[in-house]
Design a protein around this nucleic acid. Structure first.
Lengths: 231, 231
DNA sequence: GTCTATATGGGGATAGAC
DNA sequence: GTCTATCCCCATATAGAC
């Protein structure tokens, strides 16, 4: 049976550990212990810690991105050559990510924290993991948005896409902040509620009128003298 | 001289290292080496790696938050009891964060990456660091927004504040994604350009009309069989 | 205050029995 | 495929000379 595979248990445990403590913070020893397996078993199945990490990410990222492209295809087919509504583009971009929470077992939901962290990581490993699989989605989304917001200069569109992706990544990775700031009134675990509110929020930002091209203000030094130091 | 203090050089080196590699990824050895100092010196000045990290964060966070509260005070004084424009609240919330990039030496700009990372971290240490100093800002901003958007139910306001903070945190931490997705057309180092575009983007989202209170849709299972697992 | 030297532990990885 | 035992390195932290 596949579900109780040592391999699968290792992936699940690694997903939880990496999500909670980051790549460096999690140790192979704790991962294998929590999986009820052995240090050597992990190396047998994955070869190295790095390769285990890659496998953890790929397991979620691949279906997630397939789903995003599928929704984009569908929306474009419905639009039959015309522009696609911003809301539909956003649905394709964010819903498959957020829905990963409910998709599989418990550890799937904490994967999103990892996903959030990965978005602005800089090492070569992370670039390879993130930019490869996500490139196609970004390109497709950018093209669709460009057709739907033809009045926006490309530069401005790029800024707004950047804001959009950043919001999605951060919100997807959140597990406690919303509960905290709302005093328990709202919960990040309300996936459909998040999607239903996030899409109009982002759509409004993407559609907002273009401000006058303000001249780049002079440096605008801060009032305080440039002290350094600390405690 | 203070700027070339061993203490200050250690803080600067630690800021760069923690920002680039995370808390666990950075080592005291590399930090002290890059500071042109010694392992023991770091322990003499800060006591432990954890305390060094706390000092790194506090050095930027304290003036940043003072400035945010100051801008908020000013805006509220100008409004003389009336509601403050959303744009002014957002300016107080995000500008002091983003302007940290130019504020002090080179290492200040990479601090923002750390700031972004901290936003949804879960350990006790991080909660203490983040939630303490940021609590007052959040509370003040929430109150101001509530007065400026009185038609929004508190729940909806909390969701939108969550989106706003998430966007700010992610955008502040970015160093490469914008360049990457725009093909070099836009740059994260354009601090004033970021502020000038981010504020209207968020303001539009915050002001967007309330959607009909859709009934919580039925669970909406994905097409693929719900294989679970995880334990 | 700053150094060298060292104590102590935990990390990833592997060999080889079963 | 899975285990135990072990290698070897690098981590944080400290003692004690200067």
């Amino acid at each position: 049976m596949e579900a109780n595979d040592t391999r699968t248990r290792l992936l699940d445990a690694a997903e939880r550990a990496f999500s909670a403590k980051g790549y460096d913070g999690a140790s192979m020893r704790e991962i294998t212990a929590e999986a009820g397996a052995n240090l050597a078993a992990a190396h047998y199945h994955f070869g190295s810690k790095e390769d285990l990490f890659v496998a953890v990410v790929a397991r979620r990222m691949e279906p997630m991105n397939r789903e995003r492209l599928r929704l984009l295809d569908e929306a474009e087919a419905r639009a039959a050559g015309g522009p696609v509504a911003i809301e539909e583009i956003l649905e394709a971009l964010v819903a498959p990510v957020l829905r990963t929470s409910d998709a599989e077992g418990a550890s799937a939901s904490c994967f999103l924290r990892l996903f959030g962290r990965l978005q602005n990581e800089e090492g070569e490993l992370w670039k390879r993991i993130v930019n490869g699989p996500l490139l196609e989605v970004r390109t497709r989304v950018a093209a669709a948005m460009h057709r739907s917001l033809p009045h926006l200069p490309k530069r401005e569109l790029m800024w707004r896409m950047h804001f959009t992706i950043g919001t999605m990544a951060n919100i997807a990775g959140d597990q406690h902040r919303l509960e905290l700031i709302s005093g328990g009134l709202c919960s990040s675990r309300d996936v459909e509620g998040t999607i239903r509110r996030l899409i109009p929020f982002l759509a409004a930002g993407l559609r907002s009128p273009l401000g006058r091209a303000q001249p780049p203000r002079p440096p605008l030094k801060r009032a305080r003298g440039a002290r350094s130091r600390s405690r």
